[in-house]
């Protein structure tokens, strides 16, 4: 059992880790852009906002499995193959990016308008307001957002397993569904649950630890 679970767990962690990193790289700037370009934002650009907003909505309405299949060509372009753990990171990151954008947007929007106004009143530039005020003020909430993202990506990664992504989800399906080895499935699911719980616990802890409010 252990020799089945361990490699799959490793694959899942690997997949989730890099997908989180890349989806943050893609989604974080989008989230920031949404907040600053919206009406009343510190860098009002209504057209850009509308375009970004639509793209995110469209991407988010795609069912993940379909998006993944659609992104096979992109996976091939980037990692040279469409099947396997590394290849799955591409669609996972892209699927999670619009989610990340919304999560970041929500967190940044929670920041008190007054401190942004203070920034403007001392003549801070837009990047200064973003990096010196907006992001530091939103940090606890951003950490909660990243936690939510990781949990979500763990879920996605389990689904990705079904179409050759590897990892615990793949294990559960291959053994549980196709070979009727319910025990492997149960343990796989149990490990996934444990993973989610652990991430959430650590995220909550960290967020409340750094929050000075």
């Amino acid at each position: 059992m252990l020799e089945l679970i361990l490699p799959s767990l490793f694959q899942t962690v690997y997949m989730v880790f890099f997908s989180t990193v890349f989806s943050l790289l893609l989604g974080f700037p989008m989230g920031v852009l949404l907040v600053i370009t919206e009406k009343g934002g510190i860098w009002e650009k209504p057209t850009l906002y509308r375009i970004l907003d639509s793209i995110i909505n469209i991407l988010r309405s795609f069912p993940f499995l379909i998006l993944m299949v659609l992104l096979f060509p992109l996976s091939r372009l980037i990692v040279g193959k469409t099947i396997g753990t590394t290849a799955t990171i591409v669609p996972l990151s892209i699927a999670a990016a619009p989610f990340v954008a919304r999560v970041i947007e929500t967190s940044l929007k929670e920041v008190d308008k007054g401190v942004i106004e203070f920034g403007q009143s001392i003549g801070a530039t837009v990047p200064q307001i973003i990096f010196k005020i907006l992001i530091p003020e939103a940090m606890p909430s951003l950490i909660m957002g990243v936690t939510l993202t990781i949990v979500n990506i763990i879920g996605y990664s389990a689904m990705a397993g079904a179409i050759g992504g590897g990892g615990l989800g793949d294990l559960a399906i291959r053994y549980g569904l196709y070979r009727f080895q319910t025990d492997v499935m149960v343990v796989s699911v149990f490990v996934i649950v444990l993973l989610v719980q652990g991430v959430q616990f650590l995220g909550n802890k960290l967020a409340s630890k750094i929050n000075k409010k």
Partner: peptide
């Protein structure tokens, strides 16, 4: 020009995640 015109507010508008020291240091950092 705004650097010459400071402003204070009813609800203080301090950065909640920064200490008194860091709050005062912020305009200087910028």
């Amino acid at each position: 020009k705004r650097k010459e015109i400071a402003m204070i507010f009813q609800h203080f508008n301090l950065l909640s995640q920064k200490t008194a020291y860091e709050n005062i240091a912020l305009p200087l950092e910028l």
